[in-house]
Design a protein around this nucleic acid. Structure first.
Length: 951
RNA sequence: GCGCCAGUAGCUCAGCUGGCUAGAGCACGCCCCUGAUAAGGGCGAGGUCGAAGGUUCGAGUCCUUUCUGGCGCACCA
């Protein structure tokens, strides 16, 4: 086509474009988030955004929300991004509902991962050797100083990274578990639990380094191959008759239970033999002796021990053996057979030597069966006086040979061989470690409180189960089962660790070796720690630590307490006990309110923070520290595999922020189904970026058509918008807007951010962009600027902006604020001091039919393209109206369908399209309505356009 | 090994207490617009509902088994 054909005969034809009310705005199409967000952040910080909001909400009803502390180690990863953004959605939705939300970010600082990293650093830099020359306490203090510096460094790093996610929190007053006030708050919780009788001290097996005479954590072990004796040993049954009954077989001689072990030195501590209750066990005659082994293991076993004649005599279930007794081969006692699910049929005999003082499983079995946690090995690795004389004082490694020789001599040894296996070693001394029961501090979950009138139901487990079953809300609901299962099965909580980097358990030893620690003494130490931090435990004397303690007023004080002769003990708290006390150290101590409306963490925290906050809070206050638990799943890659550095599929937060910006990430988070696994991939951010742009452009369209709107107050605009009849385009939008607001707020309230996200997106994409904006363009551009219809449309759009800015604010704080300022001007009040509009608008039921008629028109127009009617404005349509519903909407139908003319009724049952290309076209509005004719200025105009132009 | 959760179009997800030809958005294809323009609009194609059994007149939806993946727990005496 050339100019001649499009601009034919009339050179004087007016250029109507300049007479249109075309949109104008300074709100840019391109968000440029990577650059704009840091600037916004700096402005927020400079103007004290958090404080301003807090001040504005000072008298508002509180929404108590408590942050679970991430570990102060390394940079944040995408898991933190997910968690922190979800939490920020909670904070900001609460604010937009008009609540006050004092949200304090926190960090977990103590614990082995940091101590381990620091120690590794010290070894590498050669400083570790120097530490060895220091006294115990000086060495501990030196390590603690390094650890504190390390944690502080990463708190700073992470805080900046979290702020960059546009999260709103009291970053000026965060909590750290290593703060003095926090530590003293933790000790208060402990004192209270102690007071109520939940705390006790008991033996428990731990990895023990003989060389360093210390307990070691899993991370301090390295595994190396080691050769040990592997022995098969016969334990004689104590009562052959009972065995005979179990197998329903008459025994001619005393049968034996055959066990296998690679640690013969633990045999002196044998107190039970475990069998699997649902496995078959065989009574066999093996080379002349009567032996009991697992039926499944028989063949393999005969080969290993080199038995020549093997005859199976009878079989019985493991459960039938439970309760039978046997005689220890060299200690003077009888023990019994017990059941254990962990017994496998992979190695050994299917009968497991059980020494509760020397193995974790054995320990648990021992506790369950009420066996003593017997550990005859002293901290130097030698046997004490409770073992047979030939073993006393011998070191365990030598005992291996002694025991094997003794068993061979006494005839209990069935077979012995050398066995190479992977065995834990102390990473520092590189010597093999042993499993040895030591005294540890516990919080008993089944002990009833000694200070409660509730009686037997007051054990922590009973209270926790009651809370899980009856009072706590779970989102998603399956969290309830999960937490219930964990609470039902958990053992007593071992809260002591033998490390340097942590909060000391303030126990002291008296001269006679007994332990001194009472609720009052703990509280006295807490006073000291509040002032000086937990370092005080390492630098001050017992007398100084107990300055606030008065034995005279402490009913629990030992009779002849001599403070001067006390020595400090050096266990520290399990870090989970500290984190699990945050409801006290933060919420209660800072008067933020208790309990929290919710805790929001990854699903792994059912085991961790959720449960370990619940137990202390129940013990101390009788109430859970949270009303609801909201859980999110873990991030996995696009193929559903978990993220890890080694797989190379981990996404860097930094990359995301640089390429997409925090708001696209937030938009993505808000749209994710966070129960269950969450797939994450750069491609998804691309998608999120596109839909963010769609929302942004829709806002931009609304804003750009408000450029010449009168300076209405919000209520003036709302009143004007609500004045539109419900059958008008504006009336329709107001109804949709009210529905949207309700839907989004309901989604937010249920922590179903996805529901809110989708509702907002659909509204922008469909309701506004595809329907309303498309239909309203004609009246916005072509109606006289101040015509009532155009002004009503602008008022409606203004209200839509008011509503959308508020609804979007929690997800897109930066963009919502940017739009808000474009709408209200730079002098606008802070968006986060506003609350939702709360529209109530009825909807006309006829709209459903209108929209479906409109869809039919669209389809008919597609068909009409074959006739050459490419542009909908070249068409008139006749729409059937069998129920007469559409008549009321007739004035709006042409705009909504995007055609030039609409008529209703007719005989056809489907939409009829008429070609209008032969009809005159308005030079200004491009419509071919019936009123178009030549006007005084020479242009072809419709009546409406002629009026608007004034010709 | 045990417990919990998930598995529906290429992607992200809806599908309530079982019931009309299984839906939406994005991506894709074709087309329109050029007065939201590094924008906007329309139409369309696309699914053995992880697999196998079973209950039922009827199952994506209930039961059993199984596979894959995630989280947690336990285990290597």
């Amino acid at each position: 086509m050339t100019d001649q054909t499009t601009q034919p005969d009339n050179p004087a034809k007016p250029d109507y474009k300049t007479t249109l009310n075309l949109p104008k705005t300074s709100f840019p199409m391109k968000a440029n988030l990577a650059q704009a967000e840091p600037a916004t952040l700096a402005r927020w910080q400079a103007q004290g955004m958090y404080q301003q909001i807090a001040a504005a909400r000072a008298d508002a009803p509180k929404f108590v929300f408590h942050d679970g502390p991430p570990y102060a180690n390394g940079s944040i990863h995408v898991g933190h991004l997910l968690n922190k953004v979800l939490k920020d959605l909670v904070v900001r939705t609460a604010l937009m509902e008009g609540r006050a939300c004092h949200y304090v970010p926190g960090w977990d600082c103590h614990g082995l991962p940091i101590e381990h990293r620091v120690m590794t650093g010290l070894v590498e830099s050669g400083k570790a050797a120097k530490l060895e020359t220091l006294s115990d306490e000086h060495r501990r203090m030196a390590i603690r100083r390094e650890c504190a510096a390390y944690a502080t460094k990463f708190i700073k790093t992470q805080a900046e990274q979290m702020k960059r996610l546009l999260t709103l929190a009291d970053y000026d007053h965060p909590y750290f578990t290593m703060q003095a006030e926090y530590e003293s708050g933790t000790l208060e919780v402990f004192a209270c639990l102690l007071e109520k009788g939940y705390v006790f001290r008991q033996l428990k097996p731990v990895h023990w380094s003989i060389a360093n005479r210390t307990a070691l954590a899993e991370a301090e072990l390295e595994y190396e191959d080691r050769v040990d004796p592997s022995v098969y040993v016969d334990f004689e049954a104590a009562d052959a008759a009972k065995v005979a009954i179990a197998f329903d077989f008459e025994c001619e001689c005393t049968p034996c239970f055959m066990i296998w072990t690679t640690t013969p030195w633990t045999l002196p501590a044998n107190l039970a033999i475990a069998v699997h209750p649902r496995q078959k066990y065989a009574l066999v005659e093996m080379d002349g002796s009567l032996t009991i082994v697992a039926a499944e293991m028989l063949e393999k076993l005969a080969l290993v021990v080199g038995a020549t004649t093997v005859v199976k005599k009878a079989e019985a279930d493991g459960s039938a053996l439970v309760g039978l007794e046997y005689r220890h081969p060299f200690c003077d006692r009888t023990s019994r057979i017990v059941a254990a699910e962990y017994v496998t049929m992979e190695d050994g005999t299917g009968l497991v030597h059980t020494a509760p003082g020397h193995g974790d499983d054995d320990y648990r079995t021992g506790l369950r069966e009420g066996l003593p946690i017997y550990c005859p090995v002293r901290d130097d690795g030698t046997f004490d006086e409770t073992v047979p004389a030939w073993l006393q004082g011998k070191i365990v490694w030598d005992a291996n040979t002694l025991v094997v020789d003794h068993l061979r001599t006494s005839g209990h040894l069935v077979h012995a061989l050398q066995f190479t296996h992977s065995y834990p070693h102390d990473w520092r001394s590189r010597t093999p470690v042993i499993f040895r029961a030591t005294e540890q501090w516990f919080i008993g979950v089944d002990k009833p409180s000694t200070k409660s009138s509730a009686g037997a139901a007051s054990s922590l487990r009973a209270m926790a189960l009651d809370a899980v079953n009856n009072t706590i809300k779970f989102v998603p609901e399956w969290g309830r089962n999960r937490l219930r299962g964990m609470v039902e099965n958990r053992p007593d909580w071992c809260i002591s660790r033998q490390r340097s980097w942590g909060l000391p358990i303030p126990a002291l030893r008296q001269a006679d070796g007994t332990v001194f620690m009472t609720p009052a003494s703990v509280r006295a130490v807490a006073v000291c720690v509040a002032a000086k931090g937990s370092d005080a435990w390492f630098t001050l004397s017992p007398a100084e630590l107990l300055a606030a303690y008065d034995a005279a007023t402490d009913a629990d004080a030992p009779k002849s307490l001599d403070i001067a002769s006390l020595t400090k003990m050096h266990d520290i708290f399990d870090v989970w006990f500290e984190a699990g006390s945050s409801w006290n150290s933060v919420l209660r101590q800072r008067n933020l309110g208790f309990p929290s409306a919710l805790y929001l963490e990854g699903s792994d925290q059912h085991r961790g923070w959720f449960q370990l906050s619940l137990l202390p809070a129940l013990g101390v206050t009788g109430k859970p520290p949270f009303d609801a638990l909201v859980t999110h799943g873990f991030l996995v890659d696009k193929d559903g595999r978990k993220m890890s550095k080694s797989l190379g599929n981990a996404l860097e937060v930094e990359t995301l922020l640089k390429d997409y910006g925090a708001e696209v990430a937030r938009w993505w988070v808000s749209g994710v189904a966070y129960d269950g696994d969450i797939r994450i991939d750069l491609d998804y951010f691309k998608v999120a970026g596109e839909s963010y742009r769609k929302v942004r452009n829709t806002l931009r369209f609304l804003l750009s058509n408000l450029f010449d709107a009168p300076a209405w107050t919000e209520s003036e605009a709302t009143a004007l918008a609500l004045a539109s009849p419900s059958q008008s385009l504006c009336g329709w939008l107001m109804g949709e807007l009210a529905t949207l607001e309700t839907e989004v707020r309901a989604g937010y309230a249920a922590y179903d951010f996805r529901r809110a996200h989708l509702a907002i997106f659909d509204f922008c994409n469909e309701t506004l962009s595809a329907v309303f904006c498309a239909a309203a363009k004609d009246r916005l551009y072509c109606d006289a600027a101040d015509s009532p219809r155009r002004r009503a449309t602008q008022a409606t759009m203004r209200v839509a902006m008011e509503v959308l800015c508020r609804l979007l604010a929690p997800i897109l704080p930066h963009t919502a604020e940017e739009a808000w300022k474009a709408l209200r001007g730079e002098g606008a009040p802070l968006l986060f001091t506003q609350s939702h509009v709360g529209l109530v608008v009825g909807r006309d039921a006829g709209w459903v039919e209108v929209m479906s008629a409109c869809a039919s028109v669209k389809k008919a127009l597609e068909v009409a393209k074959e006739l050459g009617i490419d542009n909908a404005l070249d068409a008139a349509v006749e729409i059937p109206d069998p129920h007469g519903t559409l008549a009321a909407f007739l004035p709006e139908l042409a705009d909504i369908c995007g055609v030039s003319r609409v008529t209703l009724g007719g005989k056809a049952s489907t939409v009829t399209v008429t070609d209008l290309r032969a009809q005159p076209k308005c030079d200004r509005s491009w419509r071919r309505d019936a009123t178009v004719r030549q006007r005084a200025d020479g242009g072809m105009l419709s009546d409406r356009d002629a009026l608007a132009v004034g010709v």
